[in-house]
């Protein structure tokens, strides 16, 4: 059964239709978890004993930082699958995830600096995690730039898959060298921010937000994949038929 599933998922038309059905489910469950997470994060969770209310930025900052890493790994895995088994659909997943991943990384950086201002007094601190996040943003931008630079989209997708693989191998190395670099130049004045030991009332909203961001990613990557499929398969008969049906 599984092989048939993979075989079918390989055909763009089948993927297009299945994705079409899945997107609403992802969207609805995303909205539900988002409302639940935000409500608990903003209203129910108590203020932090040290930082007061400003820590609530964590409910956006931390999940988007997790997402930026998670999406890159998903891109690398689907890149590997598309290179080894040459499945067209996984190629499309790679490029469809790139912009979402870059947006989450940017969001993590922006909220990180907005959170850092009240706590550390400056918009940007060369903290190990923020620096690794910044380098991850450059890796994402490199992937997006490479994909848009190559005209032939099949070649572009496979080149980007290789870049994602090379990137994912380098991410731990980059992260640990930044950690090493950070411990050397730890500016004495900045108190090293470590996550407050969270009790349940703070942890629940955080995990809900993390889940809701993953559902959001599911919805967006399928939507982008559908758009990518229509663009790639513009000459195939089933797209023409579909367009004519919608035109009527």
């Amino acid at each position: 059964m599984i092989i048939r599933f993979f075989h079918q998922m390989g055909s763009p038309r089948y993927f297009y239709n299945v994705a079409g059905k899945l997107v609403p489910w992802f969207m609805v469950s995303f909205l539900i978890t988002l409302v639940f997470g935000l409500y608990h994060g903003l209203f129910v969770a108590p203020p932090d004993y040290q930082q007061g209310e400003s820590y609530r930025i964590m409910y956006i900052h931390v999940p988007s930082a997790w997402m930026s890493m998670f999406i890159y790994v998903v891109m690398a895995v689907s890149g590997l699958i598309s290179l080894v088994w040459r499945i067209k659909m996984t190629e499309i997943v790679v490029i469809s995830s790139a912009t979402v991943g870059a947006s989450f990384t940017f969001l993590a950086l922006a909220t990180g600096s907005l959170w850092g201002k009240p706590m550390w007094g400056t918009w940007w601190v060369w903290d190990a995690r923020l620096t690794s996040e910044l380098i991850l943003l450059f890796l994402y931008l490199g992937i997006i730039a490479l994909h848009s630079a190559i005209e032939d989209k099949r070649v572009a997708a496979r080149a980007v898959s290789i870049l994602a693989l090379v990137g994912v191998v380098n991410i731990p190395i980059i992260h640990y060298s930044v950690e090493w670099w950070n411990t050397l130049h730890q500016p004495a004045s900045v108190t090293k921010f470590d996550k407050p030991s969270m009790d349940m009332s703070m942890l629940i909203p955080l995990l809900t937000m993390a889940i809701s961001f993953k559902l959001y990613y599911g919805a967006v990557v399928l939507m982008r994949a559908r758009a990518e499929i229509v663009e790639r398969e513009r000459n195939s008969r089933w797209v023409q038929e579909m367009v004519e049906q919608e035109a009527k």
Partner: peptide
């Protein structure tokens, strides 16, 4: 990755510099 592109230079630095960071550090 960028050999086929006419103006690959800028993209090359965007792709490669982040990977140079550990060596620099």
């Amino acid at each position: 990755l960028t050999v086929g592109l006419r103006r690959g230079g800028v993209i090359l630095s965007l792709l490669v510099l982040p990977l140079y960071v550990p060596v620099l550090i």
